[in-house]
Design a protein around this nucleic acid. Sequence first.
DNA 1: CGTTTTCAAGGAACCGGTTCCACAAAGCCC
DNA 2: GGGCTTTGTGGAACCGGTTCCTTGAAAACG
Lengths: 338, 338
Amino acid sequence: MTGIIDVALRAGVAKSTASRALSGNGYVSAETRERVERAARELAYSAHSSASSLATGRTSTIGVIMPMADRWYFAELLSGIQRALVDDGLDLGLYGATEGSAERARMLDHALAGRRFDGIIAVCLQPGAHELERLTETGLPLVSVGPFSERADTVTIDDVAASRVATEHLIDLGHEDIAFLGDEPDADRFSFGERKRLDGYCQAMISAGLDRRIRPVTTRSTIPEAFETSAALLADKRHRPTAIAAVCDEAAIGAILAAQRLGIPVPGELSVTGIDDHRYAEMFALTTIRQSPKEQGAEAVRLLRARMQDPQAPLGHVVAPVSLVARASTAVPRSDAR
Amino acid sequence: MTGIIDVALRAGVAKSTASRALSGNGYVSAETRERVERAARELAYSAHSSASSLATGRTSTIGVIMPMADRWYFAELLSGIQRALVDDGLDLGLYGATEGSAERARMLDHALAGRRFDGIIAVCLQPGAHELERLTETGLPLVSVGPFSERADTVTIDDVAASRVATEHLIDLGHEDIAFLGDEPDADRFSFGERKRLDGYCQAMISAGLDRRIRPVTTRSTIPEAFETSAALLADKRHRPTAIAAVCDEAAIGAILAAQRLGIPVPGELSVTGIDDHRYAEMFALTTIRQSPKEQGAEAVRLLRARMQDPQAPLGHVVAPVSLVARASTAVPRSDAR
DNA sequence: CGTTTTCAAGGAACCGGTTCCACAAAGCCC
DNA sequence: GGGCTTTGTGGAACCGGTTCCTTGAAAACG
């Protein structure tokens, strides 16, 4: 393997000069720089990353800790982070943490050791578990995507508002029997704001004087599980809601599929809203609150870079935009359904 | 930050002894080892990874290059790789490569520099692009998941057989008008065996004397796109096939949804098979060929470890098992449908 | 009992870059 | 023209571990 000494020899300079020429730090004459660069090119020289990291203290690698990418939101977010990091010449070390597992502990150890990564992006790390705090304490640049924290840079959406807007959309159409379909909020797994979304739904219901109709239905928010839960919910025609506000698009799609299976026309007899604007949302004509996890990922990288440049800068708290996308899964309730 | 010198000082030994005690290489008395280990624990010492890598030449990091994890197969595979790496104490550097893009080039540079990773797992790297070859030439331990290569360790499934079995299942039920729904095989994006699956379908059709009925329908194999394509395919009742053999479950599910939309009963008037046993397969009662990408990921890591231990060992070519899972999306064709 | 092994531990070299420092040459100022 | 700053370069120290080599003591051997 060719090292910087080989480059220096070929260019006829000392290795320190070669280093300066290639990194751009310190004085080097234009002519010398040119010679060194040519030598490096000819030898296809590439600096040994460990050596460089050891000397500079920088690794050019960002650690990302997130639930495994089996859900749309996480896959999209990862993709956004990935792309942004590549653009900045940074590498991505991935830690998929499923349950409060060995992975997490390992990640924390690595982070605490403080040397493998120049920064951390923590995705939907449940605040209750205090892991975010422990990461904060390492002093490493840290961005939390999803949960808010007062001690780290954050990228969030206004989950309460998103859910409120979706619910209000249903209320405005004239619905009163609106069920909320979503995760058990106490789950101490990763969180993407289930609790806040439930709150937003409740707020909208209360504001509309529908507090007596508040009806949370618990399900894990994957399409198959929401399908099962919804099928049970919708089976009994007498107690069937006229609308479902789902915690996310996957849950909403599960509900739509369950309605289809039961022969319940959507939106004729059942309106459904989601949150996400999932890849499949358009196919199901799903009315939803759009967010862009890809953009959020890019934003997280932007915050992280800023923090890396200036550790003392005031904390950045970005609230990513959301917007209502009205499609054909919501409509005025049928008068005889009241 | 505490270094090994601090540990050595506290334990009252030389740094070389401390290193030996902690790494387990070389002679250290049991008593000394105990002292050093205690000191390390008390100081919460963790070796600086760059320094360690520089000295040993090992990074404990595996590079994974794959399409972004927005599809079930890739997400599952990544999850399997991730878990296996964690179990082996290895880190995961992720390179999501979408199109023949900057990411890929970067990945190759890093790999060629030959120092950032102890090994590479290349997922569905299209053989035509010669990228696999270039990776092979670096001499780094390399496992290809998906495409076969004679010059690297591989984890594959028998795509031809999988597709043939699915098609034969339909033929055995009595179908003759069987369309194949799948990707453009020439796409020089990432490949997961579309071409071979088309071949398997053709083989089954030819063996059954149905060569005149071979009918490939091109679509990108995502649920929404397969939905659109299938809707067009199924719209014309006269030219409608009685069965669809889909290249993967996502395409199959798109077809089922299209049939539902058009009011075509499945399996009454249309049988559908997939390949994967996707997370949603059960919900749609999809008859499919099961594979386990999670297992394949673990297998890839196993091969990689073996290669890392013995670079001279003969190449390992693992063919992961698949099996037919018969559910309710396939049935005997209605006699009047012939 | 003397000699050869084996075991333990310290000192120094090394991995491959980066950066500090010393020094020389050139440019600038009064 | 002498002193001072700016520029360009080489040598050496350094980042924090690992490993080779040496030395000394204890154990095994003939």
